[in-house]
Design a protein around this nucleic acid. Structure first.
Lengths: 219, 219
DNA sequence: AAAAATTATTGTAATACACAAAATTTAGTA
DNA sequence: TACTAAATTTTGTGTATTACAATAATTTTT
């Protein structure tokens, strides 16, 4: 099964967004992510649905079918393997490789992917810490911890909150922390459990109380 | 300057065919090579001409402009570097890599090509013995010898004939040897200078007299 | 100079993707 | 429950890219 570059991009997008809204990825969410108009997304969702790649219910959003999930995982796998290649072998910096991997991920050859994987030493994670699905589409389960349990230099993705009071959520909002946000622990103070963390381009201080209420998936 | 995959394929084709007919590559030749109809080729030649990539004179064929030649060489360079990667690093066999390199050659990133080149140790030739253009489009000049001067295991491309009598040319025709044909010397007999050579899928015997009248470009 | 081969032109078609405007559905709210 | 706003789909267009058949023109061969 081969799909167009564009179709592969949509599948990958739905795969990523599905983690944030497992019940169905909205047209709007996809259109923002891919930077197209909602009506274009509807078109493509119908095409993907016809091909049995997504379950698409009008007005309700889309989820990947098993077939679609495998196709998406294949692209994700290729993307991340190429990123490892670019960083480990070609000595790119980890923040320069995304665009190039975006192109390489569309190259079609199972044999190539298999040999690349071997050549790279069967890596489990890409340079950003994201897990690399294996050839059958299995992604290594990652642990869910409280941010407060992490140590300096560890990192992970925000996957939930323990407390969900609106003041806390507003705080997170102000800090641009939401489900899916990557967090990097730059420093941790033994005395009071406070931390310095990195969120996107920003670095800031958080108290132990905050850290004890954020679930992090570590990689 | 970025071009469509298809445009890059045409440029590459004209680059290759130009060696055989430097005065101008015919529409038919291109259509055979790319496996399309002549009318489609005419269309594309006009587009490439509009973009200043080829000199196209109706009924007279096309040649690459300087701009077009550089674009073609860039693609050829990428193709051959990737072939080296596939064979040297990923352990593909030299006869399995063409299709995959056909895809990889279209990936756009000068930085990537430069780093790949370094990673591979700045190779001069691809796994088939074809020279790899450098980043400025310079191709290492190769030597022209008589086939009879080659030894066992050497190989090269037929670039001309010394004698051009029709019987000789008919002989070459029968053997599918023409300008551009790759020849691989499998064995050579000291006693009479005869050889066993490989031409495409065929292997056969040739006499010293034949070998003394064929010019070969070695790599 | 006519016939054959090659090549260009013209008109058409398919594919793939995207968008604006209008219509519909859903969700939130009074 | 009714109504409004937001989200989503429909419909109708548009563009870009590539390809081809049929016909016309040109070049080459005989």
């Amino acid at each position: 099964m081969e799909f167009s570059f564009s179709a592969e991009d949509y599948l990958k997008t739905i795969y990523h967004l599905e983690k944030l809204s497992p019940k169905g990825v909205s047209t709007n969410a996809v259109s923002e992510y891919i930077k197209t108009k909602p009506s274009s997304v509807t078109d493509m969702l119908k095409k993907l649905s016809d091909k049995g790649l997504v379950n698409y219910v009008p007005y309700r959003g889309a989820t990947l079918t098993e077939k679609g999930r495998l196709a998406a995982l294949k692209v994700v796998r290729k993307h991340r393997l190429w990123e490892v290649f670019l960083v480990d072998k070609l000595k790119f910096h980890w923040d320069e490789v995304h665009e190039i991997a975006e192109q390489l991920e569309h190259v079609q050859s199972d044999e190539l992917v298999a040999k690349l994987d071997t050549f790279l030493g069967n890596p489990d994670f890409d340079p950003h810490g994201d897990p690399i699905p294996d050839k059958d589409g299995n992604v290594k389960p990652t642990e869910k911890k409280l941010l407060s349990e992490l140590e300096k230099k560890q990192r992970g993705v925000c996957v939930g909150v323990k407390e969900s009071g609106s003041e806390f959520l507003q705080y997170l909002d102000k800090r641009n922390i939401t489900i899916g946000t990557k967090i990097n622990v730059l420093g941790k103070e033994f005395f009071d459990g406070s931390m310095i963390i990195q969120v996107g381009p920003d670095q800031f201080f958080i108290s132990k109380k905050i850290a004890e209420n954020l679930y992090i998936q570590t990689t």
